[in-house]
Simulated scan of single mutants.
Amino acid sequence: MSIRTFDAFSRLSINDINRITNFLFEYSGKFRDSKSAIKKSILYAAKEISGLGGYVFVKEEKSEILGAIVVNRTGMNEYIPENILVYIAVKEAERGKGIGNELIKHTKKYCRGDIAIHINTDNPAIKLFEKEGFKARNIEMRLTR
């Protein structure tokens, strides 16, 4: 079981994009966004839509996705982190086996610069991120239009 890394240079197929979108939608739990939003973040990471790109990390075993992370690059630094971890999910039956931890370690190793994540305060994954060195720093306030 290895982690597959996708970016602007190692393209995702349409089939992979749809598989990862469906996986993240299914296993993101009550905090999930729409399939359209998830797919857009993957397309941005793969530079299939305009932007700076990013990374998609997928843990698979025998063509079955066990966990996935989507990171988008911001193009900023010092005042906003260079990377934002947009989505992370681990298959429910695989939780507690270290897959999320392994994906985060891979993300930290692969991405240059700071990494931010927006996470709901009720999400139990907060402990996983704290164990990997993430610290609560700001709250997000959003004007939704």
Results as ranks from 00 to 15, higher is better:
2 S>K: 15
4 R>E: 14
4 R>D: 15
5 T>V: 15
5 T>R: 15
6 F>G: 03
6 F>T: 09
8 A>P: 02
10 S>W: 11
10 S>I: 10
12 L>G: 03
13 S>Y: 10
15 N>E: 13
16 D>Q: 07
17 I>M: 05
18 N>C: 05
19 R>H: 03
20 I>F: 01
20 I>D: 01
23 F>C: 04
26 E>W: 08
29 G>H: 05
29 G>C: 01
31 F>V: 04
31 F>K: 00
32 R>A: 00
32 R>D: 01
32 R>N: 07
32 R>L: 08
33 D>N: 10
35 K>P: 07
35 K>N: 07
36 S>D: 11
36 S>P: 04
38 I>F: 06
38 I>C: 04
39 K>E: 10
39 K>D: 04
40 K>Y: 09
43 L>Q: 10
45 A>F: 02
46 A>Q: 03
47 K>R: 12
47 K>M: 02
47 K>A: 05
48 E>T: 09
48 E>M: 13
50 S>A: 01
50 S>T: 07
51 G>S: 06
51 G>E: 07
51 G>H: 04
51 G>D: 05
52 L>V: 04
52 L>E: 08
52 L>I: 04
55 Y>L: 11
55 Y>M: 06
56 V>S: 12
56 V>K: 04
61 E>A: 05
61 E>Y: 13
62 K>F: 09
63 S>M: 11
70 V>Q: 10
71 V>R: 03
71 V>T: 13
71 V>L: 08
72 N>R: 03
73 R>T: 12
74 T>Q: 04
75 G>T: 02
76 M>R: 11
76 M>H: 11
76 M>C: 02
77 N>C: 14
80 I>G: 00
80 I>N: 08
81 P>N: 14
81 P>T: 15
81 P>R: 03
81 P>I: 00
82 E>A: 12
84 I>L: 08
84 I>K: 09
85 L>R: 01
85 L>E: 03
87 Y>W: 12
87 Y>L: 01
87 Y>Q: 11
91 K>D: 07
91 K>C: 01
92 E>S: 14
93 A>I: 14
95 R>V: 06
97 K>Q: 07
99 I>F: 06
100 G>W: 00
104 I>S: 02
106 H>I: 00
109 K>D: 14
111 C>I: 03
111 C>W: 01
112 R>C: 13
112 R>V: 11
114 D>E: 13
117 I>S: 01
118 H>N: 12
119 I>R: 04
120 N>D: 15
121 T>S: 14
122 D>W: 06
124 P>H: 06
126 I>N: 04
129 F>N: 02
130 E>Q: 14
131 K>N: 14
133 G>T: 03
133 G>Q: 07
135 K>I: 12
136 A>G: 02
138 N>K: 13
140 E>Y: 08
140 E>M: 13
142 R>H: 12
142 R>C: 15
145 R>S: 14
145 R>T: 10
